[in-house]
Amino acid sequence: MQVLIDAASTGSLYALVALAIGLVFGVMRLINFVQGDYITIGAYALIVPSAAATPTLFIGLWPVPLAIGGIMLIVVLVALATERAAFRPLRQTDPSTLLISSFALSFLFQQTMMLVYNSRPKSVDFGSSLAAAVAIGDLRVPGIQLVTMATAAICGLALILFLRRTSLGIEMRAAAEDFGMAQLLGVRANRVIALAFAISGALGAVSALLIVVQTGTLDYRMGVMPVIYGFFATVIGGMGSLAGAALGGFLVGAASQLLQAWLPGDLRPFRDAFVFGLVILVLLVRPEGIARSRAARERV
């Protein structure tokens, strides 16, 4: 049972990452690998910039709501800046050009982080009170796992409400399905794309905080694995379907936790290889992903 809760919690986290990737993919046909660096930047924004192994907290010391707001604001601004500087000028080009731009920018961010903060992992004490176990019946569940699941559920619901009940949300869904047609109907491309990036930044900030509370460490490549998992999640979920991406994220995250628990000790170091092997299996059986979407089949 404990294993299942671990699985659900990791699954929720990857679902958040996958949602962010899926949202940007929807409007831009871009798998934004910089999403991982949004997470890293969000996490590092907690501390005073330095190379020390146990750095002083900066935003991390602010009252919790303020700290969460501050981190979100910073990452949203970074996300908007990357969209404006690295992706908007390339929008008319091939999707692969966008992808290369996203890789280049991701490396630039990682190397810069390494220069400023040094490559050694740092330990931070942020929100560690949440790590304490909460007793539910016979189970003792770390509080952060419950927080992670609740946060993912809230973010997912908020996103659904936004996409169904607001003008910009409806415009964004239309743009994700047929960008050219949406533009002809008066949807403003710049606004919709910038908003998708802003939301992906906010989701990146949320994932960053959850990861830091869970692990208590900072690493300049801490966003890489989540974003790769998130990418696989959107692929098996069906490119362009947000619900599929969230579901895929949940499944991939859960699978990694279950494998961690069930694999024989000798094989555990190769857990990721097993997860990715499962991804390949899913794609062999359902090449179009779990939830098929028209957007992925046709780029207008």
Binding site: T166, S167, I170, E171, R173, A174, M181, L185, G186, V187
Partner: peptide
Amino acid sequence: RVFPALTALENVTVAALGSGVPL
């Protein structure tokens, strides 16, 4: 070229929003 996953009403609503009126 209707938006396949949007409802018929949403399809037309997008166009109405394009003219700048509230939802």
